[in-house]
Design a protein around this nucleic acid. Structure first.
Length: 193
DNA sequence: AGGAAGATCTACT
DNA sequence: GTAGATCTTCCTA
């Protein structure tokens, strides 16, 4: 049983690019009853507001994306192609932004993750945004959950381990920015392709 | 009420 | 490498 340390809200009250980069190596933890599922974050992407055509916030404030305007450090969950995308709201005060968790490396509750994904194979279990939400049973009910509180059903926990990181352009977006806003842990086999 | 789009995944060639 | 499946939400009529 791992002890999970909460991350203060100030961590998320910065530019999404910085938050996305620094989320690498930290833990995403899901509580299912008395069971814990967790994984190390190995791949993220940063999204902005009206200046970012790939962002959910690009077309202005809507009911489904209003979390991106809200308090930093809470979950922003959005549906695409039958899957749920898991984001953390992250922006400076009066700004808009979020960091998408794209991939994790399973740590605790691996057998339950396999059940949730209906597979026996560890390889590829959580190597994509849609796969990891399925594995951790993350659905839109968790939208708005405070991720800085370790008592909640889903939260993010700190880690002291440092990794070599790389960056590239975002994946799957139709209109990307010039900036490279995807970050990943170099050499980790759970980074998506 | 219906159509289209979307930050995806799987399976098959 | 590419096609098709399939779901939630939004936009228009």
């Amino acid at each position: 049983m791992v002890h999970y340390r909460a991350i203060p809200r100030e961590f998320y009250e910065r530019d999404p690019e910085i938050v996305a980069k620094e989320l690498l190596g930290k833990f995403l933890v899901r509580r299912l009853g008395d069971k814990i599922l967790s994984g190390r974050i190995v791949e993220t992407e940063a999204y902005y507001g009206s200046a970012d055509p790939a962002s959910r916030a690009y077309h202005g404030l809507k009911t489904y994306n209003k979390a991106m305007w809200g308090e930093s450090g809470v979950a922003f969950i959005y549906n695409v192609h039958k899957y749920w995308m898991f984001n953390v709201v992250a922006h400076e005060s009066n700004q808009i932004g979020a960091a998408l968790i794209r991939a994790i490396e399973p740590v605790e509750g691996i057998n339950l993750m396999k059940q949730n994904r209906k597979t026996e194979v560890l390889k590829g279990l959580t190597t994509g945004p849609g796969k990891l939400t399925l594995a951790l049973r993350i659905v839109k009910d968790l939208n708005g959950t405070d991720l800085t509180d370790t008592k909640n059903d889903v939260f993010i926990a700190d880690s002291d381990t440092r990794f070599q990181t790389g960056c590239s352009h975002r994946i799957g977006v139709t209109k990307d920015l010039e900036k490279e806003l995807r970050f990943y842990i170099k050499g980790n086999i759970f980074v998506s392709k």
